[in-house]
Design a protein around this nucleic acid. Structure first.
Lengths: 116, 116
DNA sequence: AAAAGTGTACGATGGCAATCGAACAGCTCA
DNA sequence: TGAGCTGTTCGATTGCCATCGTACACTTTT
């Protein structure tokens, strides 16, 4: 039998070292994506599947955000059965863009409210 | 005669300490604005008027970008005759968002090319 | 096989920000 | 006062991105 095209085929990771500042800033400029990063930062690596995040958007939109974050070198994903587990690429990303991730993770709740 | 409403009336500066991360990232995520910041970083304070920047946009659009940067606490402007001189608020902004400005200023030409 | 659960792909839509030209407002100098 | 310069404001346009629902793909379990 022919090996299955494994769902993981769509899992292309970007080396943080090859990410341009433009892409990194675009990724991090979205509040939903920053929320994902913060949640991830508070949990052990690969302990959170995409569907376990409490996000104010649809499943399709959430999936899109995870794709953007992965493409920006901000997270690594591995498939585990039907789930896709996530890891924040702290060290690698910080090496490429020192301080940027720290700003996102340090963002307090008070600084977030008022949209706009 | 009634004192003129002085052109400077439109010059509202934002204290970098009160800028939210969302606003800072939005400001810095635009390539034209980053170009302004980099140019400014290479010149003495208040030595550059808005019109002296080599930007790929119209006068009206450039004016808009300066307004956004000022509102984000990234620059200080003073009127000198018909000109508006600019100063990069390095220390203040860096105190509020450590490392962010450094990333922008450190962005090399090669990293900028390829749009997208 | 079928059902239930997780996530992606696709096509369409809406809103917002960047952009522009033209008009306006100050300043300086003749 | 008028001309020339600098920069802002205004209204309109455009392009892009976040968003959505639906359909599909894969996995696990029954």
């Amino acid at each position: 039998m022919v090996p299955k095209a494994a769902r993981a085929a769509s899992l292309r990771h970007t080396d943080p070292g090859e990410v341009r500042l433009q892409e990194a800033l675009d990724a991090v400029a979205d509040p939903v994506r920053r929320s994902i990063l913060r949640t991830l930062a508070g949990e052990p690596d690969f302990s959170r599947a995409c569907g376990t995040f409490d996000l104010p958007v649809s499943k399709a939109t959430a999936s899109h955000h995870f794709t953007v974050l992965r493409a920006a070198g901000l997270l690594e994903q591995v498939d585990q059965g039907p789930r896709r587990l996530n890891r924040l690429r702290r060290a690698e990303f910080d090496a490429r863009f020192p301080g940027l991730l720290a700003l996102v993770l340090g963002e307090s709740e008070g600084e977030r409210d008022q949209a706009g």
